[in-house]
Structure formats: C-alpha cells, structure tokens
Amino acid sequence: MNASVFSCGFAVIAGPPNAGKSTLLNRLLDCKLSIVTPKPQTTRKKITGIYHDDSSQIIFLDTPGIMQPQQKLHESMLAVVRQTLQETDVIIALIPYCKGADHIDRDFTTELFDKWLKPVSKPLIAVLNKSDLVSPETQKQTETWITNTFSPVSAHSVSARKGSGLDKLIDALRPHLPMDEPLYPEEMLSTAPERFFVSEIIREKIFLFYGKEIPYATEVVVDEFKEQHENDPSRKDLIRCSVIVERDTQKQILIGNRGSALKKLGQAARADIEELLGRPVFLELFIKVRPDWRKKQHLLKSYGY
C-alpha cells in the first residue's frame, strides 16, 4: 500500500428524519448494516460503518435524524448528533428531495446549516438525496442554490436507493480525510458488537410489523447472548431479549392473540439474525412494561442513551 496516496478519516451523515441516512450508509458499504424502515426516527444511536477501497478508508457515522425534541429520548438522540459532529473530519449534510414547488424543505435546510452544521467549523459536503424524484434541471438548480446560500465545499445529487452519484461523493470526501493509513482491518465493517445489531434487527421488525405509537414506545435490550456453537457446533447460540414498552395495552398488542404477533416477530427477527451471524440461534423475547421510559433519564441511561 502506497501511504502517500491513501487517505483515512471520519465522515458523519447528518440530516432530518427519513432523509435516507441509513439507506446511504448501507449502499456505500454494500451491506445492510443500519436498519431501514419507512417510518421516521428509526435510527436512535450512532452507527459506525467502515468503507474500504484501494485508496481510502472512510469511517461513516450514521446519526439520528435532527428534529424538534418532544421528550428526553429525543434530547438524548440529539446529544448523540452534537457529539458526533465534534468528532468527525468531514460532514455530509444529507437533504432529501421531495415533490413540491421548492423540491427541498428550504426552511429546514437553512436551520440545518445555520444552527447545526456551520457552527461546528468542519468541511461540509451537501448531498441531495432521492434525486430520482426530480429532473436533472431541478438537481442543478437546487445544487446551485445550496452552494450560493451556504457555501459548502461541494454539492452533489445522489440516489441512495438506486446507488447513483455515490462514486462522486466518495471522491469529494477523500481530500478531507487526514490520515494516511487505515485504522481498521479491511474485513471489518463496523466497530459495534454483534449484540447491538441483534437489538437493532428486532427493533426494525417492530417498526415494520406494528403501526402508530408501538415502534416509538419500544426499546430492545439484549439480556443474554451465549455463543454455544464455539464448544459444540451442533448447539444453537442462545439470545434472550427484553422488549420494553410503556403500557400494558402496548404489551398486549405486541403479543397478539394467543401470542401470534410475538411469534411472527420472533421468527422474522431470528431469520435476519441468523443471516447476520452466519449460524443458527435460539431467540427468546420477553415483553416488559416500564411506564414512560422515554421520559426517565435513569432508564434511558440504562438502555444506552
């Protein structure tokens, strides 16, 4: 490896809920690392994904969506964003295109740059996602408005869902990566432990299978993770998880008639966990009620917020 042409550093992905931050991370890594659902505010914690190629290693930091906090959980999520912005070398400001007169939310974009990103004084790259929703002419006009209004290092239109424009984004990031040697081995995709991704997979299924307030009132805690295959390859790993909700009615909805909903949840989660780990697992889910856990600092802290 020629160190003189190699670059390495951290790039945070920041933007509003449902901008496509997790989809972008997964597409860049060509791996489903961050959970993705149609509902906003799916990501609650920082997720690290490590991109490798012959001339660079980019440690991407996927963060919760920036929004107006309504409870202590939201405040904790936004604290993660603030801390991560301080730790990064370059910031990707991810702004989604939308159908409408302006094609982006200009008021939020202004707040994002002026209140959140520019005060950090880090190199800023504006990335306009969901470019497949608008015409090339609209893309060019919007990139020009972003550039003239906020003076980022560069502005790019991409489609994380379709994978277009990502090579140019990587090229734009490289000059802002300060290190000339990789921090992590090439086979490493994340710094997070397996049990973190187990809990995220279960949360993703809850977001996909349940409506209304259930996904937002739910937290998943891995209580036990026994890698039993190491001593006996015929034995399944044992994973026990607590699914935390705020009310008894939510517990009943999660369980369903005679446990049918919980069984469906467990089967879907187990299939993805086994694909992630590459081995069979025995998954047990227990529903626990912790009233107003999203508003209680000591509970949030115990859940890793």
Rank of each mutant, 00 (worst) to 15 (best):
G163Y: 07
K72S: 08
H74Q: 01
D102N: 10
S135Y: 05
T43A: 09
I273D: 11
I47D: 09
L85K: 07
L173P: 10
V153N: 03
K130H: 13
I253C: 05
A261Q: 09
L285V: 05
G266P: 07
V153G: 02
L94P: 07
S260D: 15
T147E: 05
L254S: 11
A268L: 10
P182V: 09
L33R: 05
L277C: 07
V5A: 03
S242D: 15
M67G: 00
N148D: 15
N2C: 01
L133N: 04
D248P: 02
N231I: 01
L265N: 12
F60D: 10
V220M: 08
G256H: 07
K140R: 14
D292G: 03
Q250S: 10
A79C: 02
V134I: 15
L283E: 04
L85D: 05
F225M: 08
L299Y: 12
H74E: 04
E230A: 10
P233K: 06
D30W: 00
T110I: 00
F282A: 13
T147H: 02
Y184Q: 08
W145E: 03
V36Q: 08
A101P: 01
W293P: 11
W145Q: 07
G256M: 08
R279S: 04
L177E: 14
F60P: 09
P38I: 06
S131V: 06
F207R: 12
L166N: 11
T43D: 06
L300A: 10
I214R: 06
L112T: 10
R247N: 05
L300P: 14
L238I: 09
R290S: 04
L277Y: 10
V153F: 03
R294Q: 12
L25F: 03
V134K: 04
T48N: 11
C98S: 14
D171F: 02
S164F: 06
Q267G: 00
I146V: 15
G20V: 13
D107T: 14
K205W: 09
D167P: 00
E204R: 03
R27E: 06
Q86W: 01
L29N: 11
A126T: 14
F60R: 04
K130R: 12
P16R: 15
T110N: 13
N231V: 00
A217L: 01
D114E: 14
H52A: 04
L25M: 15
L299W: 14
I91D: 11
D107Y: 02
G49I: 10
I47L: 11
T138R: 05
N257R: 15
P119Q: 13
L189A: 00
P185I: 07
A192V: 00
D30G: 02
A101S: 13
I206Q: 03
I13Y: 11
H298K: 12
R82Y: 03
Q297A: 13
Y51H: 09
I202L: 12
P280V: 03
P193M: 04
F282M: 13
E187F: 05
A3V: 12
M1K: 06
